[in-house]
């Protein structure tokens, strides 16, 4: 049966493309470096992927809803700078809720422009990307911010703490992924996001409040950024003005690698998690092999192209398509 499906152009493999590629990479890297498959290394990769991962959860939901969010990178800069700066001024118990609210406001702007006014999400969030970066610089006056008493604050537990030997960032990432996976796959809201992303017109004709659904996806994305900012600020205990620069592309790469369709209506949070881990392991593996860090960008790009190709091939039922 497998052979038959292979003959048909390989969709059997292609459908699980991400998983197969993931396993292949793991095998190759573990052969090339004996440190790769150690518990220590794996844990550290998990921990490092948590920030991208939490953000990717939100962006996956936006993309399933048929839109893009490129503003998450500079939104992360904004949220991290804000929470770190306010920490020493008003204490963490006030800094965190204020930062979360402020970040949600940014998400609401995205949601209003894209959901309610129906503007193109690529243009809106690309604009927000630079607008928010500007906002950060205005707020901080170009100064990097630090938390002075790094040992005495409970704020440290989010980035540096651990429960039962598992680092807090990993737990937070896991929790966020599970919560939103459950929402997306078993709750009415999730169903509506898939419907709106799959066919906005038909959703409206079925009485689904399309504008509100899209608006909410951007709030969720902003919430995820706020959570990522707590992990990042707590781990670093300080923040540069442009700490989130380039994160939007890594996040989007993970989402695409996880097989979420950029056309909307299809995708899965758990597969995004796989995409996040795969990117993280590739980057880690390349470093262990002694490659300079910038090689990872080249390799990442190749991996994404192959993933997209296999995805398209699976839909077409063959690897090459002479006529559209």
């Amino acid at each position: 049966m497998l052979l038959n499906r292979l003959k048909a152009g390989g969709p059997a493999i292609a459908k699980q493309g991400i998983l197969v590629a993931f396993i292949l990479f793991m095998i190759v890297f573990s052969l090339m470096s004996d440190r790769f498959l150690t518990a220590d290394n794996i844990m550290s990769v998990f921990r490092q992927s948590a920030i991208i991962g939490v953000m990717a959860v939100g962006v996956t939901i936006v993309v399933i809803g048929g839109n893009l969010d490129l503003s998450v990178g500079s939104m992360l800069s904004f949220a991290t700078v804000l929470v770190v700066d306010l920490h020493d001024k008003i204490g963490p118990e006030l800094a965190i809720p204020i930062m979360v609210l402020a970040t949600l406001c940014l998400g609401a702007i995205n949601g209003f422009l894209i959901g309610i006014l129906r503007l193109n999400s690529l243009i809106v969030t690309l604009g927000m990307l630079s607008a928010i970066q500007g906002l950060v610089l205005i707020y901080s006056g170009g100064q990097n911010v630090d938390i002075v008493d790094q040992r005495g604050t409970w704020f440290a537990i989010f980035g540096r703490g651990s429960v039962l030997g598992i680092a807090a960032p990993i737990l937070i990432f896991g929790l966020m992924a599970i919560i939103f996976h459950v929402i997306m796959s078993t709750m009415p809201f999730g169903r509506k996001v898939y419907a709106v992303g799959g066919n906005p017109t038909a959703s409206v004709f079925s009485g689904i409040p399309r504008s509100r659904v899209v608006f909410t996806t951007y709030l969720i994305s902003a919430l995820c950024v706020a959570v990522a900012a707590i992990i990042l600020g707590s781990r670093v205990m300080g923040s540069q003005n442009n700490v989130g620069q380039g994160y939007e592309l890594q996040v989007l790469a993970a989402v695409i690698l996880g097989g979420t369709s950029l056309l909307g209506g299809a995708g899965s949070i758990l597969k995004t998690v796989l995409g996040v881990l795969m990117l993280a392991f590739i980057q880690n593996g390349l470093i262990l092999m002694g490659q300079p860090y910038y090689t990872q960008w080249l390799v990442t790009w190749v991996v994404i192209i192959v993933a997209v190709w296999l995805d398209v091939a699976a839909k077409r039922g063959r690897l090459f398509s002479p006529i559209a």
């Binding site: 898939y194 799959g198 689904i208 299809a266």
Partner: peptide
């Protein structure tokens, strides 16, 4: 274009 979300299954379309 208006009646169905083609990427969704039969049940989900019917109960949407």
């Amino acid at each position: 274009e208006q009646g169905l979300v083609l990427s969704m299954n039969c049940r989900d379309n019917m109960t949407l």
